[in-house]
Simulated scan of single mutants.
Amino acid sequence: MGNTHQDPEAFARLLADVETKLFAPLPDETWVYPGHGGDTTLGAERPQLPLWRERGW
Results as ranks from 00 to 15, higher is better:
M1F: 07
G2R: 02
G2K: 01
T4L: 01
T4G: 02
T4V: 08
H5A: 11
Q6L: 05
Q6C: 04
D7E: 03
D7Q: 02
P8H: 07
P8Y: 05
E9Q: 06
E9C: 01
E9P: 00
E9M: 00
E9F: 01
A10Q: 14
F11V: 00
A12L: 05
R13G: 00
L14V: 04
L14C: 07
L15S: 08
A16G: 07
A16F: 02
V18T: 14
V18G: 09
T20Y: 05
T20E: 14
T20R: 14
T20W: 05
K21Y: 07
K21M: 12
K21A: 13
L22G: 06
L22T: 12
L22W: 15
F23R: 09
F23K: 11
F23S: 05
A24Q: 15
A24G: 09
P25Y: 07
P25V: 12
P27D: 13
P27R: 12
D28S: 13
D28Y: 11
E29F: 09
T30Y: 08
W31H: 13
W31M: 13
V32F: 14
V32M: 11
Y33W: 10
Y33E: 07
Y33G: 03
Y33F: 12
P34C: 03
P34I: 01
P34A: 04
G35E: 06
G35F: 02
G35T: 03
G35V: 03
H36A: 10
G37Y: 03
G37I: 04
G38Y: 07
D39S: 10
D39V: 07
T40W: 14
T41R: 06
T41P: 02
L42Y: 04
L42C: 05
G43P: 03
A44C: 05
A44M: 09
A44E: 15
E45K: 11
R46A: 00
P47Q: 04
P47H: 00
P47S: 04
P47F: 00
Q48L: 13
Q48A: 12
Q48S: 11
L49D: 09
L49Q: 10
L51Q: 10
W52N: 01
W52S: 00
W52P: 02
W52L: 08
R53A: 15
R53K: 14
E54L: 14
E54D: 15
R55C: 04
R55H: 06
R55D: 03
G56M: 06
G56C: 08
G56R: 02
G56H: 03
G56L: 07
W57H: 08
W57G: 09
